[in-house]
Design a protein around this nucleic acid. Structure first.
Lengths: 345, 345
DNA sequence: TTGTACGCGTTATCAA
DNA sequence: TTGATAACGCGTACAA
C-alpha cells in the first residue's frame, strides 16, 4: 500500500501506473488527438480509467489562469426573479461543464465590488451580474479584470457589455393596452424606488411614454407613477385612494413593476376593502404560481426567466470562448396572462 | 514599469517590495502574532497595504488542501424552501469568510453524486446537503471524502452527521390540534410522493400518530394521508371529494405538506368551487408572502428557514474547524399563523 | 514521439 | 528571527 486511500490520485500516480512521465499523461488528456503513439495512449488511457483519475480543477486553474467557474452575482436571492434567472443560468453553465459560484448581495449594494473581488480571486472566467446598479461601469470594469461580463435585467451606465432582459417597453405597453382594452382609464404605475436600477427606470419611462402616446382626445387616459418603499404601506394606500378619486366615474387600475410590488398592492387593496378587478384593476410584471389564486386571479406579464438565464449564460460562454463582437442587447418579450384582476365585473 | 498592471500582485511582489523573502511575508500573514521583529513586520505590512495584496485562494487551496469553499447541494432551486435555506446558509458562510458553491440538482436525483464530485474537485471543505435522499449514506460517504456534512430537512439513512430541520412532529401536531380546536374533524394530509424523502415520511407519520392519539371516544377525529404528484390534479380533486363525503355532517380539513402542495390544494379547491375555511379547512406547512391573500388567507405553519440555513452553516463550520462530537440533530419549532382558511365561517 | 525541468502562488521545513 | 528551498498538482517549453 504505497498510496494512502485518502488522497485523490494525481497525475503523478497515473504516470507511475502507466510507466510514463507526467507530461505524457498531461498530453494525452489535453491534446489527446496529436502526438501520441497508439500503444502509449492506450496504456495511459487504461491507467486513467483504472485509477479513476480526475484532474484537479484548482491546480489547472492555478496553471492556466482558467477555472471553469462562472461567477453569478445577484442583488437579492430572496427575489423570485433572481432565483428563476439563476436557475436557467446554472443549468446552461453546468451543461457546458462550468460550475457557478454564487454571491448574494442581500440588497447591500456596498458589497458589490467585494463580491466581484471574491469571485475574481477564484479566477472565475466570467460574470453574470444582476445587481443594484450602484457601482459605475468603470468601477466594475476594474473589478472584473477584463473578464467577460453579461448583465441581466439591470444595465450599468458606461459598461458596454452583453445585456439580457425583458423587453420592458413591450411589456409595459402591452400591459397598459390590456388595461385600456378592458376599460380602465386612470392608471397608476407602482415601482420599487427607482434609484439607479435601470429596469425600474425603463419601466417607469415606458409607462409615461405610453400615457403621452395615448393621450389623444376621446381616449382620455391619464396616469401617474409612484415609487413605493417595501415597508411603507401607508403611502401606497393613500396613493390608491387618490387614484380612485382622480378616476371619478372612470375605472382606475394599477400596473405593478414586479412581483414584490404586486403583493404590496394586493395588501393595500385588501386593507382598503376593495375588490380587485371591480373597484380597481391590477396587472403586475412577473407572473407567479400564486397569481391565479389571489382574489379573482391577478393578471400578469410573465417574464421568460428561464430563457433569460440560459441566454445570459450562453452569451457569457461565447465570450469566454473568445467571441469578440460588439456588445449585444437581447430583449425578450413578456407574455400576458389575463385574469380576473383586470376584469371590471 | 516592471510589473504589468494586468497581473494581480503575488506574494513575491510583496516580498520584493518589502525587501524580505516570500517566507517572511507568508509568516506575517498567517501567524502574524509570533516570530516577527516589529520592524520587519511593519515593513511587510506597509508593502501589503501599498500593493493591495490579497492572497490567491486557489494557490492556498492547492497548498493546504483547504479552499474556504462550502459546497451547497439543493434538490431544487425552484423550491422556495431551498432558496430560503440557501439564503441563511450563504450569509452565515460569507460572514465566516467562506464562499458557497452551489449545485442545483433540478430534481434529477441521479446527479447527486455527480454534484458532490464536482464540488469535491474544488476542494470544498464541507457540504450542506438538501437532496433527494436517493443515494444511500455509504455512497455519500465516499463521495464526500470524509469531509464534514450537514443535512438540511432531509435525512439520509446510514449517514450519521449533523442534521438541521423543522420539528416535523411538533409542526404537524400543532397544525392538527389547531384544526381540531377550530372544529374540523375529518382530516386529510397531502404530501408530495413520499419516496425516500425523510421529511415527507416523518410528516406523514406524525400525522398518522396524531390521529391514533386523538382517536378517543367523543373526539371522533379521523383522517387519511395522500401522496399527490404535482401534475395530477385529478386524483387530488377526487380525494377532496371523498374527504368531504367521509366528513358527512362534520367539517373536513386538509394539512398540506409544503407550499407546493398548498398551491395544488388551493387549485383543486378552486376547481371544485369550494370556499376555503367554510367548505373545507386548509393549513399548510411553510408560510409564504402570498398566503394571507389567497381566499380568506391561508393558515400556515411557518418554518424558520433563515435560522435553519444559518444553523446548518454554523454546524458545518464548527466541524470544519475540527469539532468532533457525535452527530447532532437540531429540530426547530414551526410557528403557527392562523388565518381564514381554518375558520369555519 | 517522449521525458526533463520549470513555473503558477502559496505554505512549510529546514538551516542559518 | 529570517531566508532558501521544496512541495501542492498541473501544463508546457525544451531537450532528447
Amino acid at each position: 500500500m504505497s498510496k494512502p486511500a485518502s488522497r485523490r490520485n494525481t497525475i503523478a500516480d497515473v504516470a507511475r501506473h502507466a510507466g510514463v512521465s507526467k507530461a505524457t499523461v498531461s498530453r494525452f488528456l489535453n491534446h489527446r488527438d496529436a502526438l501520441l503513439s497508439p500503444e502509449i495512449a492506450a496504456r495511459v488511457e487504461a491507467a486513467v480509467a483504472e485509477l479513476g483519475y480526475v484532474p484537479s480543477p484548482m491546480a489547472q486553474a492555478l496553471k492556466r489562469g482558467r477555472s471553469r467557474l462562472i461567477g453569478l452575482v445577484v442583488a437579492d436571492i430572496a427575489n423570485p426573479y433572481s432565483v428563476a434567472v439563476l436557475r436557467g443560468a446554472e443549468q446552461a453553465c453546468r451543461k457546458a461543464g462550468y460550475l457557478v459560484m454564487l454571491f448574494n448581495l442581500g440588497n447591500e449594494r456596498e458589497r458589490e465590488s467585494a463580491g466581484l473581488k471574491a469571485l475574481a480571486s477564484y479566477k472565475v472566467e466570467g460574470y453574470i451580474l444582476n445587481t443594484m446598479g450602484h457601482d459605475t461601469g468603470s468601477l466594475l470594469e476594474t473589478a472584473t479584470q477584463g473578464k467577460p461580463v453579461v448583465l441581466v435585467d439591470r444595465l450599468h451606465p458606461g459598461l458596454d457589455v452583453d445585456f439580457v432582459s425583458l423587453d420592458n417597453r413591450q411589456a409595459i405597453g402591452d400591459s397598459a393596452s390590456h388595461l385600456l382594452a378592458r376599460g380602465y382609464r386612470e392608471l397608476l404605475f407602482v415601482t420599487e424606488p427607482r434609484g439607479a436600477v435601470s429596469s425600474r427606470i425603463e419601466r417607469s419611462r415606458a409607462f409615461e411614454d405610453f400615457l403621452v402616446q395615448h393621450a389623444m382626445p376621446g381616449q382620455a387616459v391619464s396616469g401617474q407613477s409612484l415609487d413605493s418603499a417595501v415597508d411603507d404601506q401607508e403611502t401606497l394606500v393613500q396613493a390608491l385612494q387618490a387614484l380612485r378619486r382622480r378616476a371619478a366615474g372612470a375605472s382606475p387600475a394599477v400596473i405593478s413593476g414586479n412581483a414584490v410590488v404586486t403583493l404590496q398592492v394586493v395588501a393595500a387593496v385588501a386593507r382598503l376593502g376593495w375588490r380587485l378587478g371591480r373597484d380597481i384593476g391590477l396587472i403586475g410584471i412577473d407572473d407567479t404560481p400564486w397569481a391565479p389564486f389571489v382574489g379573482p386571479g391577478i393578471s400578469a406579464m410573465a417574464q421568460p426567466t428561464d430563457r433569460i438565464g440560459q441566454l445570459a449564460a450562453q452569451c457569457l460562454l461565447q465570450r469566454v470562448g473568445g467571441l469578440d463582437t460588439p456588445a449585444r442587447r437581447m430583449l425578450l418579450p413578456g407574455l400576458l396572462a389575463a385574469r380576473g384582476s383586470t376584469r371590471r365585473q
